[in-house]
Computed example of a mutant assay.
Amino acid sequence: MKTIIKSILILSICLWGFQNTHAQDIRFGAKAGADFSNWHGKDVKDADLNTHIRFHAGAFAEIPVAKAWNLESGLYISQKGFEANQEILGFNFDVTNTSTYLDLPVLAKYGMTKNFNVFLGPQFSYLLNNKVPYEFEGEKDTDKGVSGFKKFDLGAVGGMGYQFNNGLLVSANYDFGLLKMDDVTNTKAYNRVIKISAGYRF
């Protein structure tokens, strides 16, 4: 946790420095879209988990640093998790895990052409809440709370985007979680998310 906080502080200082240097060139925007998420890892590979479709939304700033290169960072609310339908001792059990995170990506963005770009970088995430609605033989209930989950997550983000001349944009990226989510039993399970986004850059 201390390492993550220290990294965020260092990145914030770097962004502040870029902002002072290129203040007149900073572009702001907003994005939203669909999250296609699941858990991956050694301890859940045989669990038959299904993709959980939720959403993300937030705002970003884009700072030019060199020819064709930009630094992009922002804050996004992003919902991740999994769905599962299993039979236990002859009984049907449906469960959905929805974890809501605050994501802070810091991306190096390269313009392959005037409109098409690719990007790569780290992402720092903070778990805001977690809900697990489930149904067992027609009986429904919901577990809430973040107990047992690590509050902080670190991931790598890679993707591509297209910036239209009128300000509209679309992008697709893959979030690769690097830290185990479990804070109790050390279960090897990690967030994996495909994000499809649309937005506008002012």
Results as ranks from 00 to 15, higher is better:
residue 155 G to S: 07
residue 141 D to E: 14
residue 81 G to D: 05
residue 41 G to C: 08
residue 155 G to M: 00
residue 183 D to V: 09
residue 155 G to Q: 06
residue 152 F to I: 01
residue 57 A to H: 09
residue 104 L to R: 04
residue 111 G to S: 14
residue 116 F to G: 07
residue 50 N to E: 15
residue 82 F to I: 12
residue 152 F to A: 14
residue 38 N to M: 11
residue 2 K to I: 05
residue 117 N to A: 08
residue 113 T to A: 10
residue 19 Q to M: 12
residue 153 D to H: 04
residue 151 K to I: 12
residue 27 R to W: 09
residue 12 S to K: 06
residue 54 R to I: 07
residue 4 I to Y: 00
residue 108 A to N: 05
residue 67 K to I: 12
residue 150 K to L: 02
residue 72 E to K: 12
residue 6 K to T: 15
residue 198 A to K: 13
residue 99 S to R: 15
residue 59 A to D: 04
residue 178 L to P: 01
residue 3 T to L: 10
residue 32 A to Q: 13
residue 108 A to M: 03
residue 165 N to Q: 14
residue 141 D to A: 13
residue 199 G to D: 06
residue 9 L to T: 11
residue 114 K to H: 08
residue 9 L to P: 03
residue 59 A to F: 14
residue 123 Q to K: 00
residue 157 V to L: 02
residue 106 V to T: 02
residue 73 S to H: 04
residue 127 L to I: 00
residue 122 P to K: 02
residue 11 L to N: 10
residue 34 A to G: 15
residue 107 L to W: 07
residue 38 N to Y: 12
residue 195 K to W: 10
residue 113 T to I: 04
residue 33 G to V: 03
residue 107 L to E: 01
residue 143 D to N: 11
residue 174 Y to N: 06
residue 52 H to F: 13
residue 91 F to Q: 04
residue 161 G to A: 10
residue 122 P to A: 03
residue 174 Y to C: 03
residue 195 K to E: 13
residue 174 Y to T: 08
